[in-house]
Design a protein around this nucleic acid. Structure first.
Lengths: 360, 360
DNA sequence: GTGAAAGCGCTAACAC
DNA sequence: GTGTTAGCGCTTTCAC
């Protein structure tokens, strides 16, 4: 005893076993409730555990079961409400099934993503959900299934990776939205994305993001169906921060060939675009029409309320987590995977272009 | 050898040691780079490791070092941008110091929080950051320092818990903001919070949240300094979901004693309040003034832009993580902890009350 | 510098 | 039912 102070060791099964006067194995069985244990023993063990304040060491448990009951989640930016909501979906679904979540942010940098995957694999998570920063650089993702752990992709697909992917059909919703803009009379439709790229966008260029590719494909198809060709000069990438987005917006809206409608690829971009439009003293939709991906609550509060492409983000999160856990537990795929689809919510930010008559 | 297929075991130090023709201990030393290892051995071990694709098992490592290099983070709702941003701060700071983050959502339910703490402790995280759902029920938080692991509180304090807490001084910013409203002529100032409570608010009532208490204290002080008494009937709790918030807003704005100004306790509430105000056909600030906690980007896009109380949320996250890691590593507190303060950003949502002359 | 061996706390064979 | 005995993959004495 003496001065029993300083660093107190956690109480272990051995301690409990001793106190309950049974073998370590029996104590472990009672505590982990598996195997066969007499009521008498179970009672004594549980009482002793309670008494001693025993708490299982999950690390030790994980070590010999090989299961950590932990999911690794790798997203571009948790600060972005899109991922915030998706993460909420993931953690909710995970908790429901007894799994925890280790979250890593990549800032949409592939290097950080590679590192994140390494760390999570080293930590022996049971599976991973990744929203890949790049649909092209995917060797590090390849390693996940190779290491025997399941992987589910969120939002974007990855080249050459045959894994379950939870995302909505971007091509068709993009097609539909573009049609809507075309019918309103727009021809000069700009698209702004955060996607990093060394070179400015040119038609037919290979893109790093399946998601953006699909959206552009949808737009192109809508144009071509009307016998029009799609204005590749209005696609702007590298819309990284607020400042660059304002700059892009100003450029897009200047000159004789200015855009008459702008599509923002996500909520963060939308914020800066709308701000820039207001700063220019322009009015939506009289001077410029506006459309954005993701339906956040604030989009209803602007004047006018914004027309958006709503994605079932929370459901995508739960779906991804459920799919992953299903794979981890080796169960068969759900009979019918309900397709997740985006939909266009027409509010007030799309109108006829100023000089519609010129074109139509 | 034979059909070396099926389940491939991960390669371990033992495998590497064998391949490099050294003892397991030496291989481990080279790999973990600690202890003394000759250049020759190190080289051979590293080469063998590379060759075999060795990856350390962090679980095993954690088990005998007792350090998991993982932080547990418990927040009310990651979907709330306030926590999204704080979490971003935490993960950024953690990553910078080589720590990972396990995130758990409590939905502001104390029961879920108790469970979350238990799970994280069982997983042997090195320390925890908790935004406590309740400032009163805190026995489970007590257990964290008792178990020998550091705890840092975020946003709210907890009764009887002497741990580092990262939050801004709510009483003074609330005082300042209330003064501002009073000077604009408001007397009927409502305050809406998500805080759960069995009974409606009454003056002097004990609240579950230190944060809300402080805010109300600040308001009260501002009123009293002007020789006025503070309208406790305008404090509304239990603003849980969009529907209840709209209902509260409608009530607050009806009748002869209607509120002339509304303060929303967080961004989620603000969204619904503003929407409800618009639905009622009222105009901000002509019909009702509005003030909210947290400065989100969208607050600049409404008409008029909203007057807000900006909190350094991201910095609170990084500060909390840094403080926690400092404690984990047993280092002394930073010489000067820079005080985090909120500030009032006056935009356009506060004006004179409709019937200001009646009061002044 | 190096290696053998003893754990970390738990689960899982395997006997009895 | 119960206890004994090996491990899981790593770190860490402790000799040499």
């Amino acid at each position: 005893m003496s001065i029993n102070g300083s660093r107190r060791r956690d109480t272990t099964v051995a301690d409990v076993a001793k106190a309950a006067q049974v073998s370590k194995a029996q104590a472990a069985r009672a505590l982990g409730n598996y195997g066969a244990v007499s009521d008498d023993v179970r009672e004594r063990v549980l009482a002793a555990a309670e008494e001693l304040g025993y708490r299982p060491n999950e690390l030790a448990r994980s070590m010999n079961t090989g299961k950590s009951h932990t999911l690794g989640v790798v997203v571009g930016d948790i600060e972005n409400p899109h991922f915030g909501l998706a993460t909420r979906g993931i953690t909710d679904a995970a908790k429901k099934r007894g799994f925890n979540v280790i979250l890593i942010n990549t800032d949409e940098e592939t290097a950080a993503e590679v590192e994140a995957v390494r760390v999570l694999l080293d930590k022996r998570v049971d599976g991973l959900i990744v929203a890949p920063a790049s649909s092209v650089e995917t060797q590090h993702l390849q390693r996940i299934p190779e290491s025997g752990r399941p992987l589910v992709l969120l939002d974007r697909t990855a080249a050459g990776l045959d894994v379950e992917t939870v995302s909505v059909d971007m091509a068709s919703i993009s097609y539909e939205s573009t049609q809507y803009l075309l019918e309103a009379g727009h021809r000069r439709i700009a698209f702004i994305s955060t996607l990093k790229s060394d070179a400015p966008y040119t038609a037919g260029m290979e893109l790093d993001s399946s998601q953006i590719s699909e959206r552009l494909d949808g737009m192109r198809r809508a144009f071509e169906e009307k016998g029009l060709s799609y204005p590749a000069d209005l696609v702007r990438l590298n819309a990284g921060n607020a400042e660059s987005i304002r700059k892009i917006t100003r450029e897009l809206l200047a000159g004789p060939e200015a855009a008459t409608a702008i599509i923002a690829s996500d909520g963060l971009i939308a914020l800066s675009v709308v701000e820039a439009i207001q700063e220019l003293g322009l009015t939506i939709p009289a001077d410029v029409s506006f459309l954005m991906y993701d339906d956040f609550a604030w989009t209803k509060l602007t004047t006018p309320p914004l027309t958006v492409i709503a994605q079932p983000v929370y459901e995508m999160g739960t779906t991804a987590a459920e799919a992953l856990i299903r794979q981890i537990e080796g169960r068969k795929p759900a009979p019918t995977t309900p397709a997740l689809t985006a939909r266009l919510i027409r509010r007030g930010s799309v109108g006829a272009p100023r000089a519609a008559s010129v074109f139509s």
